[in-house]
């Protein structure tokens, strides 16, 4: 393997590790203010009041994104989501929303919910 290729791979691995560490770290935002903003500024409209997602927006409860990646995505989303600029949502406010989303506990497993478990293919 060429030295340059090795360096690129090492750098990429380091970035992935940083990104995983970022994603797992507790958010620095104010989750309670994030909950208020999530409702007031209409995030629930597409993602649901429980962040569960639906036809018009994916699940964002317990988001795997880091706060930094989350803010970056909201500024320049790639899908059907509108872009929210700092003029309407500051980085600090988005960090609070991220903290709120991060704080959602994982749901019960579908297999532990009788109504869903019975819907499994036999």
């Amino acid at each position: 393997m060429k030295k340059s290729t090795l360096m690129v791979l090492t750098a990429a691995a380091a970035m992935i590790l940083v990104s995983v560490a970022e994603a797992q770290a507790p958010s620095k935002g104010d989750a309670e203010n994030g909950r208020r903003l999530f409702e007031k500024d209409g995030c629930y409209e597409c993602h649901g009041h429980a962040g569960q997602g639906g036809k018009d927006g994916p699940r964002i409860a317990a988001t795997p994104l880091s706060a930094q990646t989350f803010v970056r995505y909201v500024r320049r989303p790639s899908g059907a989501m509108p872009a929210y600029t700092p003029k309407v949502l500051s980085d600090e406010e988005l960090t609070d929303i991220h903290a709120y989303l991060k704080a959602f506990p994982a749901p019960k497993q579908a297999k532990d919910i009788q109504l869903l478990n019975q819907l499994r293919d036999k």
Binding site: A50, G53, A61, K108, I113
Partner: peptide, 17 residues
């Protein structure tokens, strides 16, 4: 299977999913 897993999110939420 993915649909069932997705349905579990917000299962006990109010308003009802």
């Amino acid at each position: 299977e993915q649909a069932l897993d997705q349905a579990a999110w917000g299962w006990d939420a109010s308003p009802i999913t």
